[in-house]
């Protein structure tokens, strides 16, 4: 049943997607408000009315239940879309291509033995090391350089801009830098102007092509690091800096001995946030090389199996999860510390 172009079918009748979208907003928003309003009303007026002899006790009971009314939709959605999949994915990864074909840990064993997987894992390691480090470093650099600049906000805004661009869009943008043609790609144009003859395809240089791909993500994420680190720099008490100036610190010492130590916590947060992102982004590799020429990383490797071999796909996903796990635990520990 192929839907007519421009229309999607919902229970047998057709309507334009836009109308369906609007309807969803109305139903979704109305449903949410209705749910919260009515459930509170029910609680206060019917189940535990704040009247009669038990008024005080009823109010207390209602107040014990109310948080859960407020939380229920979120907990339900989070549980369904994020908690259940952790278990569900693991369970599925113990089966083969068909969901009834129990294979135990075979998927993992085969992955471990596969060259492509090892390559993807190794490349991903490179990404995890290089991208957060470079993005944080550049972000800090820009944050510091623009800190006292009169046009600093404009500069920051321009460097922040790639944040708004999709990974796909960014990849296309960078194709105009990397293109294998001196009249399109900037890199080859520069090479040509330096007298090199044949254009090269940087996407096909073994090993180094990974770094050219990373540049794209660094280009996007530097702005994020810059915004946060710039705020952190601003948050440093002015007095400590003035005291250091009086103590005779030069700008370098001021930066590395006074400022950086005071924003170390923020640097770590930025670093881990970008690390997590690196483990999610498949778009760049998918668009630029399709994982060819030895540029596969885990997220794109997983997409190779998606729709083809769910067992293998979920196994790769679960391995990503395991890689993320230490960061997750560290985050939770950190958050719990702050709440005390």
């Amino acid at each position: 049943m192929a839907p007519r172009a421009g229309f999607v079918s919902l229970k047998g009748f057709y309507m334009p997607v836009i109308v369906q979208g609007l309807l969803t907003i109305v139903i979704g928003v109305g449903g949410c408000i209705g749910y919260f309003y009515l459930s509170n009303l029910l609680l206060d007026k019917v189940i535990f009315p704040a009247k009669g002899e038990n008024a005080g006790r009823n109010i207390n009971r209602a107040n014990q239940i109310r948080p859960w009314l407020f939380l229920f939709p979120a907990i339900f959605a989070l549980g369904l879309y994020l908690v259940y999949p952790v278990v569900g994915s693991f369970w599925r990864s113990l089966y083969g291509r068909s969901p009834s074909d129990w294979v135990g840990f075979d998927n993992y064993v085969q992955l471990a033995a596969s060259n492509e997987f090892q390559q993807a894992f190794f490349n991903n390691l490179l990404w995890v090391i290089v991208v957060p480090a470079m993005a944080t470093f550049l972000g800090l650099l820009v944050a510091q350089l623009t800190d006292k600049l009169s046009w600093g906000n404009i500069a920051k805004s321009l460097i922040f801009m790639p944040m708004a661009i999709s990974f796909v869009g960014a990849s296309l943008i960078w194709k105009f830098v990397y293109a294998n043609d001196a009249d399109i790609g900037l890199i080859n144009a520069i090479r040509a102007s330096l007298g090199f003859g044949n254009p090269i395809d940087v996407m096909q240089i073994p090993f180094w092509n990974n770094f050219f791909l990373m540049v794209i993500l660094i280009w996007i994420q530097t702005g994020f690091a810059m915004v946060i680190l710039s705020a952190a720099l601003r948050g440093i008490p002015e007095e400590t800096i003035e005291a250091a100036i009086l103590d005779g610190a030069n700008p370098w010492q001021l930066f590395f001995r006074i400022k950086v130590p005071q924003i170390m916590g923020t640097i770590v947060v930025v670093w881990t946030t970008i690390t997590i992102l690196v483990l999610k982004v498949f778009d760049i590799v998918y668009t630029m090389t399709g994982g060819n020429f030895g540029t596969e990383i885990l997220p794109s490797y997983m997409m190779d199996f998606m729709f083809r071999d769910d067992g293998r796909a979920t196994a790769v996903a679960f391995i990503i999860m395991i890689v993320v796990l230490p960061v997750m635990i560290w985050n939770i520990v950190q958050a719990r510390k702050e709440m005390r």
Binding site: Y81, S89, A313
Partner: peptide, 23 residues
């Protein structure tokens, strides 16, 4: 619950693809 939310913040999306699509 707050800790759970913080934890879920970093769960890779990839995990949800297969189970949720199947669901």
């Amino acid at each position: 619950l707050i800790a759970l939310v913080v934890g879920l913040l970093v769960v890779p999306l990839q995990l949800a693809l297969v189970p949720m699509l199947n669901l």
